[in-house]
Structure formats: structure tokens, C-alpha cells
Deep mutational scan, measured.
Amino acid sequence: EEWMVEKALMVRTGLGARQIESYRQGAWIEGVHFKRVSPSGESTLRGTTWYNYPEINKFIR
């Protein structure tokens, strides 16, 4: 699984929702560690946020 939603990321990493938000707003790079995608497939600020687990795992190492 490369891309996953927040709940799956929480299960895989043990991070809480606030921790994920903090990383997203600070250290993680949009387009690398996470992306927002609307149902139409376009990038957007209001779409579902998807997280790239392999890239996040590399960051944590």
C-alpha cells in the first residue's frame, strides 16, 4: 500500500490525528508525503487527504 487515508496511517504508524496534522503542517511535503485529491481526481484543498506511507516511513527513519 503506497497511498492511504489518515485512519489507515494511524493504524500503521501509531500516530494520532493531532500528530499527523502537526507533521502535515510542518515537516511533511505536499505531493511527497501527502496529497489532497477531490472525487473528480483533481488536486484541491478540500479533497480527501492521502498519505504516502513509504515516504513517511523513510522520513521517520
Score class of each variant (00 low, 15 high):
residue 8 A to T: 13
residue 38 S to M: 11
residue 39 P to R: 07
residue 38 S to C: 10
residue 46 R to G: 15
residue 57 N to E: 15
residue 49 T to M: 14
residue 24 R to P: 00
residue 42 E to C: 08
residue 42 E to M: 08
residue 52 N to W: 03
residue 60 I to K: 03
residue 51 Y to W: 03
residue 21 E to H: 09
residue 32 V to M: 05
residue 5 V to Y: 07
residue 50 W to R: 04
residue 30 E to I: 05
residue 34 F to N: 01
residue 58 K to F: 07
residue 17 A to N: 06
residue 28 W to T: 00
residue 32 V to W: 05
residue 4 M to C: 07
residue 8 A to D: 15
residue 48 T to V: 14
residue 50 W to S: 03
residue 33 H to K: 00
residue 30 E to Q: 06
residue 25 Q to I: 11
residue 31 G to A: 03
residue 25 Q to R: 12
residue 60 I to M: 13
residue 30 E to G: 03
residue 21 E to P: 01
residue 28 W to A: 00
residue 40 S to Y: 10
residue 34 F to Q: 01
residue 6 E to V: 11
residue 34 F to C: 02
residue 13 T to W: 02
residue 12 R to M: 12
residue 61 R to C: 11
residue 60 I to F: 11
residue 56 I to C: 03
residue 43 S to A: 10
residue 16 G to F: 07
residue 54 P to D: 11
residue 14 G to F: 03
residue 11 V to I: 14
residue 25 Q to D: 11
residue 45 L to Y: 06
residue 40 S to V: 12
residue 27 A to G: 09
residue 16 G to A: 12
residue 43 S to T: 11
residue 6 E to I: 14
residue 22 S to W: 14
residue 28 W to K: 00
residue 52 N to G: 00
residue 17 A to R: 14
residue 49 T to W: 15
residue 53 Y to F: 12
residue 57 N to L: 15
residue 52 N to M: 02
residue 5 V to W: 06
residue 33 H to I: 02
residue 27 A to W: 09
residue 39 P to N: 12
residue 41 G to D: 10
residue 55 E to V: 06
residue 47 G to M: 11
residue 3 W to E: 01
residue 59 F to C: 04
residue 21 E to A: 13
residue 26 G to Y: 13
residue 58 K to R: 09
residue 7 K to R: 10
residue 30 E to C: 04
residue 2 E to G: 08
residue 28 W to N: 01
residue 13 T to V: 04
residue 27 A to F: 10
residue 47 G to R: 07
residue 35 K to V: 11
residue 25 Q to P: 02
residue 28 W to F: 04
residue 45 L to R: 07
residue 31 G to D: 05
residue 40 S to T: 13
residue 44 T to K: 10
residue 23 Y to P: 00
residue 48 T to M: 10
residue 24 R to S: 07
residue 17 A to G: 06
residue 3 W to N: 00
residue 20 I to F: 03
residue 30 E to H: 05
residue 30 E to K: 04
residue 2 E to V: 13
residue 7 K to Q: 12
residue 36 R to M: 14
residue 19 Q to W: 04
residue 61 R to L: 14
residue 57 N to F: 13
residue 44 T to P: 12
residue 5 V to M: 15
residue 15 L to Q: 00
residue 3 W to R: 01
residue 22 S to A: 14
residue 13 T to G: 02
residue 46 R to C: 12
residue 45 L to W: 07
residue 5 V to I: 10
residue 61 R to S: 12
residue 46 R to N: 15
residue 16 G to E: 12
residue 4 M to N: 02
residue 44 T to C: 09
residue 20 I to M: 04
residue 39 P to A: 13
residue 4 M to E: 03
residue 47 G to P: 13
residue 20 I to K: 01
residue 27 A to M: 09
residue 3 W to C: 02
residue 12 R to C: 10
residue 22 S to H: 14
residue 34 F to S: 00
residue 13 T to D: 01
residue 51 Y to L: 01
residue 51 Y to G: 01
residue 46 R to F: 14
residue 18 R to A: 15
residue 14 G to E: 03
residue 18 R to C: 12
residue 22 S to M: 15
residue 40 S to Q: 11
residue 9 L to N: 00
residue 23 Y to W: 08
residue 5 V to C: 12
residue 54 P to H: 11
residue 58 K to C: 06
residue 21 E to N: 07
residue 40 S to K: 09
residue 24 R to F: 04
residue 39 P to H: 11
residue 39 P to C: 11
residue 36 R to D: 11
residue 45 L to A: 13
residue 24 R to H: 04
residue 37 V to Q: 08
residue 19 Q to A: 09
residue 8 A to M: 14
residue 59 F to M: 06
residue 59 F to K: 03
residue 35 K to I: 13
residue 16 G to P: 06
residue 26 G to N: 14
residue 7 K to Y: 12
residue 34 F to H: 03
residue 27 A to I: 11
residue 10 M to K: 05
residue 54 P to C: 10
residue 17 A to Q: 11
residue 61 R to H: 13
residue 43 S to V: 11
residue 56 I to K: 00
residue 52 N to K: 02
residue 47 G to L: 10
residue 37 V to R: 06
residue 32 V to L: 10
residue 58 K to G: 05
residue 9 L to C: 02
residue 45 L to G: 14
residue 28 W to M: 02
residue 25 Q to L: 13
residue 16 G to N: 15
residue 14 G to D: 04
residue 26 G to F: 13
residue 31 G to V: 04
residue 23 Y to G: 03
residue 2 E to K: 07
residue 24 R to N: 03
residue 46 R to A: 15
residue 25 Q to C: 08
residue 48 T to F: 07
residue 60 I to D: 03
residue 49 T to V: 15
residue 3 W to F: 02
residue 36 R to K: 12
residue 28 W to G: 00
residue 13 T to S: 05
residue 21 E to S: 08
residue 15 L to V: 02
residue 1 E to G: 10
residue 26 G to M: 10
residue 43 S to L: 09
residue 41 G to I: 08
residue 24 R to V: 15
residue 44 T to A: 12
residue 14 G to V: 02
residue 57 N to G: 06
residue 41 G to F: 08
residue 41 G to T: 09
residue 53 Y to G: 04
residue 46 R to D: 15
residue 43 S to Y: 05
residue 47 G to N: 10
residue 4 M to W: 03
residue 49 T to L: 15
residue 9 L to A: 02
residue 40 S to P: 14
residue 43 S to M: 09
residue 27 A to K: 08
residue 31 G to Q: 04
residue 47 G to Y: 13
residue 28 W to D: 00
residue 19 Q to I: 06
residue 61 R to N: 14
residue 56 I to W: 01
residue 41 G to K: 08
residue 57 N to R: 13
residue 22 S to T: 12
residue 16 G to S: 15
residue 11 V to W: 11
residue 20 I to E: 01
residue 15 L to S: 01
residue 55 E to F: 03
residue 46 R to L: 14
residue 25 Q to V: 10
residue 55 E to P: 04
residue 35 K to Y: 06
residue 52 N to L: 03
residue 28 W to P: 00
residue 32 V to Y: 05
residue 21 E to M: 08
residue 33 H to F: 03
residue 35 K to C: 08
residue 44 T to Y: 10
residue 30 E to L: 06
residue 56 I to Y: 01
residue 46 R to I: 14
residue 42 E to L: 08
residue 18 R to Y: 10
residue 8 A to L: 12
residue 43 S to H: 10
residue 7 K to M: 09
residue 29 I to H: 05
residue 27 A to T: 08
residue 46 R to P: 15
residue 15 L to F: 05
residue 48 T to Y: 07
residue 49 T to I: 15
residue 38 S to T: 11
residue 59 F to S: 04
residue 9 L to Y: 02
residue 59 F to Y: 07
residue 19 Q to H: 05
residue 20 I to Y: 01
residue 56 I to A: 01
residue 57 N to M: 15
residue 49 T to R: 04
residue 55 E to M: 08
residue 39 P to T: 12
residue 13 T to M: 06
residue 23 Y to C: 06
residue 30 E to M: 05
residue 43 S to N: 12
residue 39 P to L: 13
residue 2 E to M: 09
residue 38 S to D: 13
residue 51 Y to F: 05
residue 50 W to P: 00
residue 32 V to E: 04
residue 40 S to A: 12
residue 55 E to C: 05
residue 54 P to W: 09
residue 11 V to R: 13
residue 56 I to Q: 00
residue 15 L to E: 00
residue 12 R to L: 14
residue 56 I to R: 00
residue 27 A to E: 10
residue 37 V to W: 07
residue 4 M to G: 02
residue 39 P to Q: 11
residue 26 G to P: 00
residue 43 S to P: 12
residue 30 E to N: 05
